[in-house]
Write a protein that binds this DNA or RNA. Sequence first.
DNA 1: AATGAATGAGGGTTCATTCAT
DNA 2: CATGAATGAACCCTCATTCAT
Lengths: 191, 191, 191, 191
Amino acid sequence: MRDVSLRADAARNRSSLLTAAVEVFAEQGADAPISAVAARAGLGKGTVFRHFPTKDDLIAAIVLDRVDRLTRLAAELIEAPDAGAAVLEFMRHAARQRQRLDLSFLAADLGVEVGEAQLRMSLAITALVDRARAEGALRADVTGTDVMLLMCVPNDVVKHVPDARPDLWERYLAILFDGLRPEGARPLPPF
Amino acid sequence: MRDVSLRADAARNRSSLLTAAVEVFAEQGADAPISAVAARAGLGKGTVFRHFPTKDDLIAAIVLDRVDRLTRLAAELIEAPDAGAAVLEFMRHAARQRQRLDLSFLAADLGVEVGEAQLRMSLAITALVDRARAEGALRADVTGTDVMLLMCVPNDVVKHVPDARPDLWERYLAILFDGLRPEGARPLPPF
Amino acid sequence: MRDVSLRADAARNRSSLLTAAVEVFAEQGADAPISAVAARAGLGKGTVFRHFPTKDDLIAAIVLDRVDRLTRLAAELIEAPDAGAAVLEFMRHAARQRQRLDLSFLAADLGVEVGEAQLRMSLAITALVDRARAEGALRADVTGTDVMLLMCVPNDVVKHVPDARPDLWERYLAILFDGLRPEGARPLPPF
Amino acid sequence: MRDVSLRADAARNRSSLLTAAVEVFAEQGADAPISAVAARAGLGKGTVFRHFPTKDDLIAAIVLDRVDRLTRLAAELIEAPDAGAAVLEFMRHAARQRQRLDLSFLAADLGVEVGEAQLRMSLAITALVDRARAEGALRADVTGTDVMLLMCVPNDVVKHVPDARPDLWERYLAILFDGLRPEGARPLPPF
DNA sequence: AATGAATGAGGGTTCATTCAT
DNA sequence: CATGAATGAACCCTCATTCAT
């Protein structure tokens, strides 16, 4: 009973830390000190290291969480009736994540676990995109990898606009998605 | 003549430093140590300081150079016969710069000089884009600011792909530019 | 009790650091490197920062300690039966502090806290001096401020004598105090 | 003819540098950068080192100048009719030098030349003081060394008073000199 | 002889990480 | 388990000094 409760505590702390880290890194960038994360979570600095032996581990955990979330989303959307709308919906979700951990969350050096998660996400997105393409909702020469690479663009772009309206990213998602549609598509350079 | 040669030495060093800094920052990110830049340039650490009193000054110099280059390019292209092709050419150039100092080079806190240069670039791009739009080469609801924000995307996107072919960015420029064309354009959310 | 012991450790270190800093600054001047202080205290460089976020904070802490000590001393001596002897005693104590942080500890830019402490000290000294003057133990035209400015002189003077006997400062305190006595006093230029 | 003019140039530069150094060190302290001295003198940094191979050499030169000046002054005053007034005059001169190179100009590690100059000054002052003491203008137990050590006190003391009237040092010279007079003198601790 | 560019040692400060309590 | 004190590597920056021009 006791260690159960302890584990509950630990799990709660781990979760607080992840939340705090996402916030802090979003606000201050990924080079924010660990102490800031600890403070935000209302915990001691040492506790962060108990849960994440390394700062990189903490970042990896954040990315893992995010990637898995997107994988699940893609898996759900695969059953949507309108595949094109599903891809758009997927990109909308990806872009909405107002986290400063931008495209770099695709970085290669985040450990095996994250790598595997990225692979799973890649497969799920590819499935989604393949279906949309088959239905003619996307241009013929676009792949799941393309979508994966592009999905953060709206958010990234907007990050550098001071005082932007919070939904400005939708504008760039729209432009981008128009570029993914079959209408008026010109042949793409190879991948 | 003599003091010219003196300055020639210094100017060459300054230029070496800028080149080295672009390379190093591209490889390691903008938080690479100044000493790495100095080493790459084959110069002493103190020499960097002599030319750029602050690391921020160094970064600002890089950005200033890049921005001014783009401004000049836009100014030249304004006279091109095909305005749409000119915008594409402009974006191609912007995307080709293999520098990790990505979109963030639009950041606000780089000093007045850079701010003014950014404004000049913004005006030049807007002129270019306005003309292309007037000719029907771009969708009716796209602005110079949009292009300015999007021009680095191809490069940014590709940076996270390990072992990518060096011209992969062209693929994403093509997608993006298709999104900027009038064909199949659906109305955009406001800026 | 336990966290008391934790704090006891930290407090001991803080105190070691202050002691070490006083010694090192006395020997090498206030521009001695922080690392020297740390080494003298047998602690890591970072520990100094933990306790005193800035070198100036460390200096301010030393000065604050010294000023408060003198304020307490003056407050005690105000009840002494012989006010003239009390002032002499006070100056003796002030001069005895073998610290190279000499008169400059009256410098203005040490932060509010030190400023307030200096004010308190000033008031306490003035009270002491006023009483002594009223009793005829000091010349009529001397003020607390004068004493405050002069109290470090014996120590300062002696610091430049190589191989001086350790109590040489008493000689100059005697001369100085004779100058503060009413006997043979000639009118002073104004403050 | 030419190298004569060159030497004249050099001598003028040397003198400019000394003046500039005195000013700069007085304003910013002795840790002011050499470049500040060079700038003040309107010369290049390298020229400073041509004249004074080391910063310490520059400081030594300043001190040497000052010490010799005081030696000459003492030598002149030895012939004054009123020996007591002569000592006071001497101290007045010493105190008037508004230079931040305070008492520390007695420091031991300034090189042989300065050491010898200090010795000469010491002898000259001692002669002056001995005569004044013999005439009963100074207390019987005061020595030339005492005066040498005390002569900078007025200036030192005042340096720490913000917004002091420029002649405030006279006040402390008066107090000090009253302490050196025979009236009311109490026996001194030994040297 | 003068200049100022180049150098690199050294100082203050930050922060990931370890560890005693 | 949690805490936060201690640590030291690493960074930016300053400046005395050297040296090519």
